[in-house]
């Protein structure tokens, strides 16, 4: 059974008179353990797709089954729980809490989990260590470089040990070397922990790390090929 299955997914935006089809008839299946890259020009609907499969947004039409569950039938609290337990999401714009330290930012998903708080700090620290930020624990986002903020956002997505990692241009702000290090981390997570990864990227050598590439154009999938 597929972990992610979308059927004729569609997302329309009415802007004034015109209608924007950010997603148009998107049907795709991603099995557990896959490592998928999503590519396409700017405005082609990649982020919209990621938001949709990350249970952050709801489609205008079509269905989305996550782990066999039709998410269209779930209420806001059930979706929140899925986001918390099953999905780690790296936003294109980082979306870190201002005036909050890196360490606390990474702990936020844990606060909303049903787990006991005693090891929250340790888990957040080890997630930040994984991304090489062990000496930036108490920095606020505005005291971090763009690449460091991006890595805090990745640490936050990893802290809950979610089986699905969705990353919207996770290396966009990183130099090539750091970008490749992050990609090596993702590959390792995918191989060792069997974490399913879907990531958006513009760079071919980043996409080359994955096993499958889905290309978007004007809200449609134009190619879906195994690497």
């Amino acid at each position: 059974m597929a972990l992610i299955e979308t059927c004729n997914l569609e997302k329309r935006y009415d802007v004034g008179e015109s209608v924007v089809r950010a997603l148009d008839d998107v049907s795709v299946r991603i099995r557990a353990g896959e490592f998928v890259s999503v590519m396409g020009p700017s405005g082609s609907g990649k982020s919209t797709f990621m938001n949709m499969i990350g249970c952050l947004d709801v489609p205008s039409a079509g269905r989305y089954l996550l782990d066999g569950i039709d998410t269209g039938l779930l209420g806001p609290d059930e979706l929140a729980e899925i986001r918390n337990r099953k999905i780690g999401f790296v936003f294109q714009g980082f979306n870190l809490l201002a005036r909050t330290t890196a360490l606390e930012n990474v702990q936020v998903p844990l606060l909303y989990s049903a787990q006991r708080p005693k090891d929250f700090r340790d888990r957040a620290v080890s997630a930040l260590k994984l991304l090489g930020l062990e000496n930036r624990l108490d920095h606020h986002p505005n005291q971090l470089s763009g690449g460091q903020q991006q890595r805090v956002a990745i640490a936050r997505a990893l802290v809950n040990d979610a089986p699905l990692l969705l990353a919207d241009e996770p290396t966009g702000n990183l130099d090539t070397k750091t970008g490749i290090e992050i990609m090596e981390l993702f590959v390792r997570l995918n191989e060792e922990k069997k974490i399913t990864i879907v990531l958006v990227t513009h760079e071919a050598d980043i996409a080359a790390c994955s096993r499958r590439i889905i290309r978007f154009l004007d809200g449609r999938i134009v190619s879906d090929q195994v690497n």
Partner: peptide, 15 residues
């Protein structure tokens, strides 16, 4: 935005 971030990582209505 803060509310959105918290919700995105799993905060429920009640939280």
């Amino acid at each position: 935005r803060e509310i959105g971030i918290r919700m995105a990582v799993g905060a429920k209505t009640w939280d």
